[in-house]
Each structure stands twice: as C-alpha cells, then as structure tokens.
Amino acid sequence: MSETVADVTGSSPEVRSGGCLPECGKIRFTVTGPVDDPHLCICAHCGKRSGAPFQWWVGFPMAGLKWTGEGGEPTWFDTYPGKTARGFCGTCGTHIAARDYGDDTIIGILATALDHHDTDPALVPTNLNRVAEAAPWLAQCDPQPAAAG
C-alpha cells in the first residue's frame, strides 16, 4: 500500500510510488499527500487516447510530486493545447499523469500507474465522469464476477 513518513509538523502524510511499465522503469515518481477526487473518466477523449473505455484518475498535491526515475519527467503532450497536458513514458508509452495549465496545485495521476493501486482503499473511485460519452455497451456489462463453475 502506501508508506508513511513524518513531516516537520509531526503529521504523517502518505507517500505513494509509481511509474511506467516495470520492464521499462524509466519514469518513476512518488506522490505525498491526500488523495483528491478518485474517479473514472468515461469521456471519448480519454478512451481514444488510452485505447480503453475509461481511465481511473486520482489527484494529488503538485507540491508532493517527485520524479525519481532515470528518465526524469514524462514526455508531455498538449491534448488540449494551452489547457491540459498528458504525461507518458517516451520509451514504453505508459500513460502516467495529466496537468492543467494555470493550476499548479493538483497533478492528476492515472491510478494504474501507482504501484499498489489494486490494494489501496483510498484510491477507490467515488464517481463516474462524463457518463453521457460512455460507449453504449458499457451499461450492459455485468459488474459482478462470474460464478466459478
């Protein structure tokens, strides 16, 4: 899950790590601070860019972000020029982050780029974003796992 470190105020913020594909490892990062707005974005833009019907985003304080891998920061691409840039590993192509121009307080991280996204209860999505743009078949998917048989 996440590790805890004490800061100068004596409180213990959570530190999470993540990065691109383990087979590559060029882009690594840590984020420290509270989770902000974990959600699934179902917009056509995220779908086209990622090749998936939705993406799982989580916000963190920009001040708590540190790029730690040998590749430094991800490669940034302005998906909405002058508004939003998306970060990805220039070597393996893993989607990692998003940042909005003019907002230096929050960084959006794809939850799946975090090392322990599957076991961290703070990352569970709390809402669906842009549902009207979802693939029409998505509502037909059964959210319950199939019974073993």
Rank of each mutant, 00 (worst) to 15 (best):
L21M: 14
L128Q: 07
F88L: 10
T112D: 10
A52V: 03
A135F: 11
G25T: 13
W137I: 04
W137H: 09
D118N: 00
G90H: 06
P74S: 10
A85C: 06
S12A: 09
G33R: 08
E70P: 11
G33N: 05
L123K: 00
G59F: 08
A113M: 10
I96F: 02
L40G: 01
P22M: 12
G102P: 15
C46F: 01
A85Q: 15
E23Q: 14
G149N: 08
G102L: 13
A113K: 02
G102E: 10
E70G: 10
A6F: 15
G47Y: 04
L114T: 05
I42D: 08
P22S: 11
R49S: 07
D142F: 08
P136S: 12
G90Q: 07
A44M: 14
P125G: 08
K26P: 00
F54K: 04
M1H: 01
D7I: 10
V8W: 03
L110A: 05
F29C: 10
L128M: 14
P81Q: 13
P53R: 00
D104M: 09
E73H: 05
D7Q: 07
G102I: 10
F88K: 00
D78Q: 09
R99Y: 09
A134Y: 03
H39W: 04
L128H: 14
F60I: 04
T84K: 12
L65T: 11
A146R: 09
C46D: 07
N127I: 04
G93E: 11
P145K: 08
W57N: 10
G82S: 10
A63F: 02
K26D: 08
H39R: 11
A122F: 01
C92P: 02
K83V: 14
V131K: 14
C89Q: 05
G18R: 03
E23V: 12
D115H: 09
E14L: 11
T9C: 02
I106C: 04
G18D: 07
Q140W: 12
I109F: 05
V58I: 06
G47M: 03
D120H: 00
D100K: 13
G51S: 07
R49Q: 07
T30H: 05
D103F: 14
P121K: 01
G102H: 03
A98I: 01
P125Q: 13
T91E: 12
T105R: 12
D120Q: 10
D78C: 04
P81T: 00
T9K: 06
G82K: 00
T126E: 08
F60M: 12
